[in-house]
Simulated assay, not measured.
Amino acid sequence: MGLSVLTSGSEGEEDREVQPDELATSTSSGEEAAVGDATSESELEEEGGRFHWYAVHTYSGYEKSVSKAISFLSERHKELEGKINRIYVPTEQVKTRRSDGREMRRERALFPGYVFLRMELSPEVVKVCTSAPKVIGFVKSAEDELQMFTDEEITAIEEGKKQRQQAGAREVPFAVGDRVKIVEGLFAPFSGDVEDVSVDKKRLKVTVGIFGRPIPVELSFDQVELADEED
């Protein structure tokens, strides 16, 4: 069985201007089939229950890069052959504005800093996955063991995403954990991580790294935009 890398949108999708009829989006049938395969009883029976869902903690904003890196590493290491059969990054569509005033639609991670893996647990798999760039480590339980997620929990994530998509792209463009680029004000063009969001005031608190020190700053929505991974 080949390795399947799943995201909620197209790989490498660029930001683009929103068209009036594009504010409501839906998941492609191919993605629904892929997630369905991951939770089907026939597949579980065929695999003998060897595969379970786990999650790796990543640097926020690097979820897709990590998923590609793990896929690449799993293909290079023969001892991982057949050990990982799903890599899943839940995403959603959000609306934001560029510094020139254009309204854009952008794909962003539903769970910033997390990539889900359906895999057969082994020391080799853990070692290779944690060696991928921008990976902090596996999510662990209170007993300091790798946290296992059920197929039902992953399906619930996908179902919740579909409901949000049917309601249209989210109006609030930022969330805690987002990587943003400052486009206006004293700290432009530095990038930082969102620590708090005030929807009513349309302001957010961002921690910016300057001269090796984390500096908290408060900014309006208009002063920032979602950063690209290289920012």
Rank of each mutant, 00 (worst) to 15 (best):
S4I: 15
V5H: 00
T7V: 12
T7N: 06
S8N: 09
S10R: 15
E13Y: 03
E14Y: 10
E17H: 09
P20W: 06
P20G: 00
D21V: 07
L23I: 09
T25Q: 15
S28E: 04
S28V: 13
S29D: 12
S29T: 14
G30S: 15
E31C: 13
E31N: 11
A34N: 11
A34C: 08
V35A: 09
A38K: 04
S40A: 01
S40L: 03
S42H: 02
S42G: 02
S42M: 00
S42A: 00
E47A: 12
G48N: 05
G49C: 10
R50C: 11
H52L: 06
A55L: 10
V56N: 07
V56T: 10
H57N: 10
G61V: 06
Y62S: 08
S65V: 07
S65K: 12
S65I: 08
S67A: 05
A69V: 03
I70K: 07
S71P: 01
F72C: 10
L73E: 08
S74V: 09
E75A: 07
R76P: 04
L80H: 02
G82S: 02
R86N: 11
I87M: 04
V89E: 13
P90C: 09
E92A: 14
E92F: 13
Q93M: 14
V94S: 07
V94G: 06
T96A: 11
T96E: 08
R98C: 10
S99P: 02
D100K: 11
D100P: 04
G101F: 01
E103Y: 02
E107T: 14
R108Y: 05
R108Q: 07
G113S: 06
V115P: 01
R118Q: 15
E120I: 06
S122D: 14
E124S: 14
E124F: 00
K127V: 07
C129S: 00
P133S: 04
K134C: 08
V135F: 04
F138Y: 03
F138D: 13
E143T: 05
D144F: 04
E145F: 12
L146H: 12
F149M: 14
F149W: 02
T150C: 05
T150Y: 10
D151V: 12
I154H: 02
T155K: 13
A156L: 10
I157S: 07
E158F: 15
K161D: 12
K161R: 15
K161H: 08
K162Q: 15
K162F: 09
R164M: 08
Q166K: 14
G168H: 09
G168S: 05
A169S: 11
R170A: 15
A175V: 15
R179I: 03
V180M: 01
I182C: 01
L186P: 07
L186K: 15
A188M: 01
P189E: 01
F190L: 12
E195M: 08
D196S: 00
V197E: 01
V197G: 00
V197P: 00
V197M: 00
S198T: 08
S198I: 03
V199T: 12
V199A: 04
K201W: 04
K202Y: 13
R203N: 11
K205A: 05
T207R: 07
F211T: 01
G212K: 04
P214A: 09
V217G: 05
S220A: 06
E225I: 03
D228Q: 13
E230P: 02
